Simulated assay, not measured.
Amino acid sequence: MAKPLEQFHGSDLEKIEQIYGIKKENITSFSANVNPLGVSFRLRETLSSHIDAITSYPDREYTSLRNAISQYIKASPSHILVGNGSTELISLFIQIRHPKKALIVGPTYSEYEREISLGGGRSHYFSLKEQSDFSLNLEELCESLHTDIDLLVLCNPNNPTSSIITRSDMRKILDVCKQNDIFVMVDETYVEFAEHMEEITSIPLADYYNNIIILRGISKFFAAPGLRLGYAVCGNEDLIKEINQKKNPWTINSLAAIAGEIMFGDDEYKQQTTNLIHSERTRICNILASCPNIKVYPPSANFVLVKLLKEGITSSDLFDAAIQKGLMIRDCSTFPFLDNHFIRFCFMMPEKNDELLKVLLDVMK
């Protein structure tokens, strides 16, 4: 049985194809954390009718797009920045703030540390504890926020733990950061999948705090990573102005901008996604909880972190068993504070979820 030669990102289907000899078209990626419904229903029906938009430059200010986002997230258009995926906005923010010492709450997405390092800064981690199911200890975090730290990075819901920070707790964090002149970057890539999003999102806080920037995109919830459309919300007008001055013009192409406007208004799609993820998240976690060799950490996003408790079985073994069936999960052994007994997978359509559950339970029984 072939063993994975490296860790794979959810988009690395070509590498999987080369190593395992499985055509990428036959692989279901439970690693990419993308909405299993595919792109917006309304977008599918209408985008082609806007093809002539590519004959002219987009509006430099992306006014219509920002207004559509404003209606979707209930925030002022003047607080909204758009970019070529949230990655571009993270990079621009780091370049401008130029943090010398950042505190990252982890285990989490590695791109934050990479961007901080490229900007010449150092990253330190505040560890989420396994014994607390990777939920944040608010008191301990606040005690760690000193004046020598100039940036706090939070992913909410967090990847890969699927744990959350409520808005009320985020406000307490912001108060402490305000006292210590610390800026806070919050990545809300997965917040739309959360059951009680209105209690989690930090976007309303941008009206009251000038030391927070919230990042979102369309890659996961709207299943459109190829469009490269991201946005940020920030109430700090000086920072917004500086980012806009540093940004290259027209980094979002005309069709991507129009697609965003269409997707953000597709209420039927949003509701069906919410219903599907809630239903499958509950069903799958209940099934996994019945297996004594599996530890499930309570998920709030569209993915779940699992610990393998069976002696002699590692995350690499389970990755291998799943990929042989054309099912790609995430081996989490490369995340800080996780070892080779942790896996992560997202919730797909019920029949595919059943296929993965069978593999997982067969290996772990």
Rank of each mutant, 00 (worst) to 15 (best):
H9T: 10
G10Y: 01
E14Q: 12
E14R: 06
E17A: 00
I19M: 07
I19S: 12
Y20R: 01
I27Y: 03
T28S: 00
S29I: 04
F30E: 05
S31R: 03
A32C: 08
V34H: 09
N35E: 11
V39Q: 03
H50C: 06
I51F: 09
S56D: 10
P58Q: 06
R60S: 00
S64T: 04
A68L: 14
I69L: 15
S70V: 06
Q71C: 13
K74C: 15
L81N: 00
S86P: 03
E88V: 01
E88Y: 02
K100I: 09
A102F: 10
Y109Q: 10
Y109W: 11
Y112D: 10
Y112E: 05
E113R: 08
E115G: 00
E115I: 02
S117M: 12
H124T: 11
H124G: 05
H124L: 11
Y125C: 11
Y125H: 10
F126A: 02
L128A: 09
E130N: 07
E130T: 04
S132P: 14
S132Q: 12
F134R: 05
N137R: 11
N137A: 12
E143T: 14
L145Q: 09
L145F: 13
D150G: 06
V153S: 11
P157E: 08
N158Y: 08
T161P: 01
I173T: 14
V176T: 11
C177D: 08
K178P: 05
D181S: 10
I182R: 07
I182N: 05
I182G: 01
V184F: 01
V184R: 00
V186I: 10
D187G: 07
E188S: 03
E198W: 10
E199D: 15
S202H: 01
S202G: 13
P204N: 05
D207A: 14
N211V: 05
I218M: 08
S219H: 03
K220T: 07
G226R: 06
R228D: 13
L229S: 01
Y231A: 01
A232G: 07
E237L: 09
E237P: 15
D238S: 11
I240F: 09
K241F: 04
N244C: 12
N244R: 12
N244K: 11
Q245G: 06
N248L: 15
L255F: 07
I258W: 07
I258T: 05
E261I: 13
E261S: 08
I262Y: 02
F264S: 03
G265Q: 07
E268H: 15
Y269F: 07
Y269N: 09
T273A: 13
T274W: 14
N275P: 03
L276D: 04
H278M: 11
N286T: 12
N286E: 09
C291G: 01
C291E: 11
Y297P: 01
Y297C: 06
Y297A: 01
P299N: 01
A301S: 15
F303V: 07
L308F: 14
D317T: 06
A321S: 08
I323C: 00
I323Y: 00
I323A: 00
K325F: 10
K325S: 05
L327M: 12
D331I: 09
C332K: 02
S333Y: 14
S333I: 13
F337G: 03
L338Q: 03
N340Y: 02
F342H: 13
F345E: 03
M349Y: 06
E351K: 06
D354F: 03
L356Y: 04
L356S: 04
K358L: 12
V359I: 11
L361N: 05
L361H: 10
L361R: 12
